[in-house]
Amino acid sequence: MSEKHTISCLVENHFGVLSRVANLISARGFNIDSLTVSATEDPTISRMTIVVDADAVKLEQVKNQLNRLIDVIEVQEMKEGRFIDRELLLAQVKVNGAALAKLEALTQRYGAKVAHATDQSVVVEVAGDTKTLDQLVDELRKYGVLKLVRTGRVALEK
C-alpha cells in the first residue's frame, strides 16, 4: 500500500549533489511530495529531507538507490512516532472588516500569527506538522486563500 514516508539523508555539502539526488528521483520514477536541503551542525554536510509516496517495495528501492550515490553519506527512514517534523506555511488570505477578528481567533488556535496585513488581506504564518497545517489550510480556504506556500517537511529523530 502506498503511503507517505519521510527519508532523511546526510549528503556531502558540495556542488551538484542536489541535482544528483533530483536526477535519481526522476530517472527512477519515484513520486516525491517534498524535498528540502539545509545546513547541519557540520558545515561539510547537508541534510536532505525527502517525503516520498511509495509502498514498502518502492520505499526500499528509493533508500537503496539513494545509498548508491557516492555523495550520500547516510540514509535514514524516519519511523512513525519516532521523529519530530515541521514545516512552515505562509498564506495570503482575503479578509476585511468583521471577518478579521474571527481569523485572528483561528490563527491563535493554531499557534499561527499574522505576519503582514493590508486593508484587503493578511499573510498568515505558521509552523507545525503536516496534519495540523493541512487542517489550517482547510479553515483558511473558507475566507479565500489568495496565495499559499509551504517549505516541505524537515524532520529530526527524537
Binding site: 549528503v11 556531502e12 545509498n67 548508491r68 550515490l69 557516492i70 555523495d71 550520500v72 553519506i73 547516510e74
Partner: peptide
C-alpha cells in the same frame, strides 16, 4: 577516504 562510499 570517501565517507559515503565505504559500505559500497
Amino acid at each position: 577516504n570517501i565517507r559515503g562510499y565505504k559500505l559500497q
